[in-house]
Design a protein around this nucleic acid. Structure first.
Length: 113
DNA sequence: CCGATGACTCTGC
DNA sequence: CGCAGAGCCATCG
């Protein structure tokens, strides 16, 4: 349970439902700073029959990593919406659904309307 | 060893 | 906000 891939999968599995995280963040939590690309590889190699909330992993800007309109893009946005996450034009407001959303709100106050 | 690749990220314009 | 360029890193031929 200590090889990089396992830690990556673990970090992803730890993302609470209804929340999202960036590739870089996952790499960080897995003890692999600067390895966002390795997280991407891990996800690509993830067998479909493995239970993993891969849909909660987005780019640092909150955009879905798949090309807009692709099969994966559609499935990911659908899965996210199913959890109550707001997805508009393939983008998710990290300030509201990101892992540190609560901390951010506590420190910086609620997001402007 | 070298160059190419990619579910990435940051900076500048 | 969008685009281009450069950096980064494991993997592969």
């Amino acid at each position: 349970m200590s090889d990089p891939y396992t830690r990556i999968y673990q970090a992803i599995a730890d993302i609470p439902a209804g929340r999202v995280a960036g590739y870089g963040q996952i790499a960080m939590r897995a003890g692999l700073p600067g390895r966002a690309r390795m997280v991407a590889r891990a996800l690509r190699d993830t067998p479909d029959d493995m239970e993993l909330p891969w849909h909660r992993v987005l780019r640092s800007d909150g955009r879905i990593a798949f090309p807009e309109g692709s099969a994966g893009w559609r499935e990911q946005s659908q899965r996210l919406r199913a959890e109550g996450v707001v997805v508009s034009r393939g983008r998710v407001p990290m300030s509201a659904f990101g892992l540190d959303a609560d901390l951010d709100r506590a420190l910086w106050g609620p997001p402007p309307a």
